[in-house]
Design a protein around this nucleic acid. Sequence first.
DNA 1: TATTGTTATACTCTATAACTATA
DNA 2: TATAGTTATAGAGTATAACAATA
Lengths: 147, 147
Amino acid sequence: MVTTAEPAQRRIAQALVRLAHAVQQVFSEVSREHELTPQQAQLLCLLIDGPVGMTGLSRALHLERSSLSGLVDRAERRGLVARARDSRDRRACRIELTGEGARVAALAHDAVTARLETLTAGLPPEHHDLLAATLDDLLSRPAPPGP
Amino acid sequence: MVTTAEPAQRRIAQALVRLAHAVQQVFSEVSREHELTPQQAQLLCLLIDGPVGMTGLSRALHLERSSLSGLVDRAERRGLVARARDSRDRRACRIELTGEGARVAALAHDAVTARLETLTAGLPPEHHDLLAATLDDLLSRPAPPGP
DNA sequence: TATTGTTATACTCTATAACTATA
DNA sequence: TATAGTTATAGAGTATAACAATA
């Protein structure tokens, strides 16, 4: 039925771009409601699963370590995270959430999730499982173009 | 089969977050390859469809007009865009691509699209149309939460 | 020598507040 | 008075290059 007017692959790509902007916007609004910058919120959410070293964070966030130093400095100054020395490697440190940081991180994470879930509210429920599986499939490929 | 272990809505929301980061990463890499900041690339892509006024741009990009002034200043300084006075309203101006700006915008746009299309390469082709339709459906709802 | 993380520097991005010019 | 856009200011985010301390 739907043929060659506009290839499905192209339509998907364009939808992904708009979708990314929409998600980013949600992230931005939620951050602001909790008096965080989007970057700080992203950092906090990443630390929910446990402490991470600077190099690990830099890879996860796609940031230079020097950029990250500043980000962590400002989050530390606000009492959201703390640097803990690593006992086995005296060069390294683990960044961990403070009590307040964990509280804010959970609130922000839940708010983002809740708002994104309402996005799917209008979809036919019988499509939910297929969409979830398809998106997971899409993300399981780590994107071919390595720098 | 897939039942209540993890609700599909939640799985979709989480996938959307990861997807947004992946798309943002593609955008970031492509921008860098063309010596643009991601914000400049986004501005240029928006202008491909034709000139837009400052207020229109500020709404489309979710930026304060003062932030936009600086963004346009820097893009103008790099020869990518130009400010054209509006003949009917002497307060207003239209931002338009220069020849060079249009060239770079097309390159960056195509590169992003191409890279995102490869993402879908691993999906069963018979799912393409449904996915495209579902994503469009997802985006047709302008997100309920007004500030 | 290689790795972990920081500092110094220079831009870019962003918002708030106050402003000019036109409608 | 309201709208279109800018300027001033301050802070945040980012990269590159040079550095310190430890492995």
